[in-house]
Amino acid sequence: MQRIYIRFLMMITCASLLTLTGCMASTRNLDTEAETHYDATYDFSDKSQIVNRLVTPLLSAPVFPVQEKPLLIIYPVVNETSEHISTGGITDEIRMKLIQSGRFRFINESQRENIQKETDYQYQGYVDPAMRVEQGRQLGADYILGGTLRSIKKEQPRQWRLFKKERIYYSLDLSITDLKTGEIVYADQAELAREASQPIIGW
C-alpha cells in the first residue's frame, strides 16, 4: 500500500513538473531577413523574398533609361489566393525600395482624397492666400505598376497516415503599363513553393 502511495506521488510530481515547464512563457526577437515558417502558408519572410526577387531586376531593366526618372503610380496587387493576405505590404515595400534606389518617382494614389480634402480646406478662407497650395499642379504618372498574387494548393489525399502534408505554390506577377499607349513595357514574376507536414494525432 505504501509503495503504491509513493509511486502515485512520484507520478503526480513528474506530471506537475512537466506542466510547469510547458507553461513557462518566453519571448524573443526574430531576424526579419531569416526564413522561419510554421506551416506552408504565406508569412512575413515570403514577403521579403518576393519583393527582393522583383525589385532587383527592375532596377537594371533597360526599358527605363538611367538618366530619366519615370513617374509611376501603383495600383494594389490583386489577391487571387485562398488566404486573406494583405498585399498592401508587398506594394508598399516595392515602392519604398524603388524610391530609395533613386531611379523612380511615385504618385501617391492612396492620398488623393486627403490631398483634395486639404486643398478644399485651404480654399475655404481659413488659410492665408499666400500660403495656399497652387491647384492644377499635380504630376501625371507615366506608368502604372500593378500585379496579381495567385496560389495553388494541394493536400495529400485521404489515406492511412500519421502526418498530413500540404503543398502551396505562390506566384506574384508584376507588370508596368505605359499610361499613354496602354502597352505593357515590363513584366516579371516571383514564385515560391513550400511543403509542410503536420501530425494528424496530438495530445
Binding site: Q198, P199, I201, G202, W203
Partner: peptide
C-alpha cells in the same frame, strides 16, 4: 466568423486525451 474559421483549421488534429 474568421476566428471560427481559424479554430476549425486548428481543430483538424485528433487529440488523444
Amino acid at each position: 466568423l474568421l476566428k471560427a474559421s481559424q479554430l476549425i483549421k486548428r481543430q483538424e488534429q485528433i487529440s488523444i486525451s
